[in-house]
């Protein structure tokens, strides 16, 4: 089963296996990634809402992911992680920078990101937002309404201190 020239698998075997590799988009095994929370969650949760909120707020401002990363001085990989990975755990600086660029109240955004305990109004608004939002290329009227309603709650609760 080993090659004469190497100690590894032989060429015929490798060529056969390579065909299977090529028929898939990935060959990754992800047990450890799942343990460490690096995979997208399958259920709605606070991080899912955070990622969706950032994505919608970015699109509302007609910013690309790259532009948002540049303006917020956050790594592009971090923005991709936040928007793609519902288990993303952004740090305080990243959330603060995003809040500044996207005109969102930073203290409330910390709650949505799971970095502070959310008030009941924020939790409730987040759930409504999650239920109404779907990721599409352009914000629909309903998505825009959902975003505006959610941001309104964040701003109002922010005013209360």
């Amino acid at each position: 089963m080993t090659n004469n020239k190497t100690n590894g698998p032989d060429r015929e075997w490798l060529l056969k296996m390579a065909e299977f590799e090529d028929s898939c988009r990935s060959i990754s095994a992800g047990g450890m990634a799942a343990d460490l929370g690096l995979l997208p969650a399958t259920q709605s949760g606070p991080h899912r809402v955070f990622g969706r909120l950032i994505e919608f707020a970015r699109r509302k401002k007609s910013l690309s992911v790259e532009q948002l990363a540049e303006r917020a001085q956050v790594d592009l990989a971090d923005i991709v992680d936040i928007e793609m990975n519902e288990m993303a755990a952004p740090d305080v600086r990243t959330v603060f920078q995003l809040a500044t660029v996207l005109d969102l109240p930073s203290a409330r955004l910390m709650e949505v990101a799971g970095l502070a305990s959310p008030r009941p109004e924020v939790s409730s608004a987040a759930l409504k937002f999650a239920a109404r939002s779907e990721p599409t290329a352009k914000l629909s009227r309903d998505e825009r309404d959902a975003l505006e309603e959610f941001v309104k709650v964040l701003v109002e609760t922010s005013d209360k201190g």
Partner: peptide, 13 residues
């Protein structure tokens, strides 16, 4: 544990 995009590699390959 395979990622969804890798499942057929581990099953068929």
């Amino acid at each position: 544990h395979a990622l969804p995009q890798s499942e057929s590699f581990y099953e068929k390959g």
